[in-house]
Design a protein around this nucleic acid. Structure first.
Lengths: 149, 149
DNA sequence: TTGCTTTGGTTGGTACTACCAACTATAACT
DNA sequence: AGTTATAGTTGGTAGTACCAACCAAAGCAA
């Protein structure tokens, strides 16, 4: 596992896949966390903005996307709403449900974050050739797509 | 960015590298978080155990590894110590410093976690051929190694 | 050597995350 | 209609992570 920055000591470039996946996850999450912090957001809030960028969801959908307790979502959305990042509105079809979607300000935030993230990732993948980048995208895609049918 | 599980809708398997990296990071982090939760740990505590698995560090080193505020580390280590996962001892060479290292129980925990993680990752990479797995490890390694010289 | 600065860690306080259990209200089922 | 299931909220707890303020040992300087 070895979540540290230097768990696989130099030399063995191929490393072990477990370490590589865990480490790249931590690196990416670290970057995302920093990115969020720079924009005065938490990682979870950043996720919410990202998810809502091209969707209008009910609370319960958001729960599915994030895999968190509903009370957690309530608080999350409430704080984000208070900050003007997103809006709540009753769902037209279901009297129990509440829809959530980005406000103007939230959308602007989300766009900026997406751009920043893109910049970070390209910096991270700079060391790879274009072919390698494609290859990496394909492999990760193949690994992940089974998870969301 | 699109941190969601299904941000890149079906079809374009190659996806876009940014999405793929972010998503695989979230998937991996999700698994790590679940793994940690099953063992009654937080993600950060799991990281600490992973880092200390083959090291004895001073607090300040731990700060570097985790990239968190020192007061955060103090609390983290204090709670883990109270739970018997790790030990604190004054550093022999520097009167100000405190060494941190795994207890027996902490070590056992860490081993178990490493095994569980390995199991999870292999399940995740099951869809890949052996050659693809190697390739993925190489690419991730190449991408990450520059970050820890 | 005495005094100033830097480094290593802790303490106290705040905001947020995330969980659980208990609750209200609408919807769906029989 | 009456029961059951679903959608969200509220209240309470533990943990994460930050900041500012602090103490003590170490390093450096005059």
């Amino acid at each position: 596992m070895s979540a540290s920055r230097r768990s696989s000591e130099a030399g063995q470039v191929e490393g072990n896949l477990i370490d590589m996946l865990a480490q790249s996850a931590f690196v990416t999450m670290g970057a995302l966390t920093r990115l969020a912090a720079e924009n005065d957001l938490s990682l979870t809030q950043l996720r919410v903005l990202a998810i809502l960028r091209d969707r209008r969801l009910r609370m319960s959908d958001l729960i599915d996307y994030l895999g968190l307790e509903k009370s957690t979502i309530t608080g999350l959305v409430a704080r984000a709403e208070k900050r003007g990042l997103l809006c709540r509105a009753p769902n037209a079809a279901d009297g129990r449900a509440i829809d959530v979607f980005l406000s103007e300000e939230g959308r602007a935030h989300a766009e900026r974050l997406a751009a920043d993230l893109a910049r970070f990732v390209s910096q991270l993948t700079d060391v790879l050739t274009v072919a390698e980048r494609d290859q990496l995208g394909i492999l990760l895609g193949k690994m992940i797509t089974p998870l969301h049918p």
